[in-house]
Amino acid sequence: MSKKSKKKKWSQDVTEKSDALDLEEGVFKLDNPAKIAHSLKRSAEASDRRKSSPFRSAMSMLTFYINRAGAGLSKQQKHVLEEAKVELRKDFGRQPK
């Protein structure tokens, strides 16, 4: 296995089998930022394995996915995921950046 495919497998494993959150299947492929945020919030609040607050866990997983998917995301899907960050802040009563 090449070094590149090992890295890809590692990040895929984190996304699919994270010890912090049990994600709903296909959550990052949704086209509605509010639905993505709500799903991440539910997952973070339901998890008893996370190491930080539900907000931090949910935001970290979303940011991790955006960063790891990188060039593989369409401009539209990246925009949806970035908007999901705004929705996630709203869901947790945090001030937008």
Results as ranks from 00 to 15, higher is better:
12 Q>R: 14
67 N>E: 13
66 I>F: 03
44 A>K: 00
70 G>K: 10
91 D>L: 08
1 M>D: 06
84 A>G: 04
1 M>Y: 09
19 D>Q: 10
17 K>L: 09
15 T>V: 07
73 L>P: 03
59 M>Y: 15
82 E>H: 03
89 R>Y: 08
50 R>Y: 14
11 S>N: 14
94 R>G: 02
76 Q>S: 13
46 A>L: 12
86 V>M: 02
35 K>Q: 04
86 V>F: 03
96 P>H: 05
47 S>Q: 10
79 H>T: 09
48 D>K: 15
81 L>N: 02
51 K>E: 15
2 S>V: 06
3 K>N: 10
65 Y>N: 14
97 K>Y: 06
11 S>G: 05
49 R>Q: 11
68 R>F: 04
72 G>E: 14
7 K>G: 02
78 K>G: 12
63 T>W: 01
93 G>I: 10
68 R>T: 10
85 K>G: 02
97 K>D: 15
79 H>C: 07
67 N>Q: 14
21 L>A: 10
23 L>D: 04
69 A>P: 00
29 K>Q: 14
56 R>M: 07
80 V>F: 03
48 D>Q: 14
44 A>F: 05
40 L>E: 06
75 K>D: 11
51 K>A: 12
72 G>H: 08
63 T>Y: 02
62 L>D: 01
61 M>H: 14
85 K>H: 06
95 Q>L: 12
42 R>E: 14
2 S>L: 14
82 E>K: 15
1 M>V: 13
64 F>E: 07
15 T>E: 00
52 S>Q: 08
78 K>T: 13
18 S>G: 10
10 W>Y: 12
22 D>S: 06
54 P>K: 03
74 S>E: 13
53 S>T: 15
9 K>P: 01
54 P>R: 02
37 A>I: 09
39 S>K: 03
70 G>E: 05
27 V>T: 10
35 K>S: 05
4 K>H: 08
87 E>C: 13
25 E>M: 11
65 Y>T: 09
69 A>N: 08
40 L>A: 08
75 K>C: 05
21 L>Y: 09
36 I>D: 00
27 V>F: 01
84 A>Y: 01
8 K>N: 04
3 K>L: 11
9 K>D: 13
64 F>W: 10
6 K>G: 02
6 K>Y: 09
42 R>W: 11
94 R>K: 12
42 R>C: 14
75 K>I: 12
39 S>G: 10
7 K>E: 08
74 S>L: 13
39 S>C: 04
84 A>R: 00
63 T>R: 08
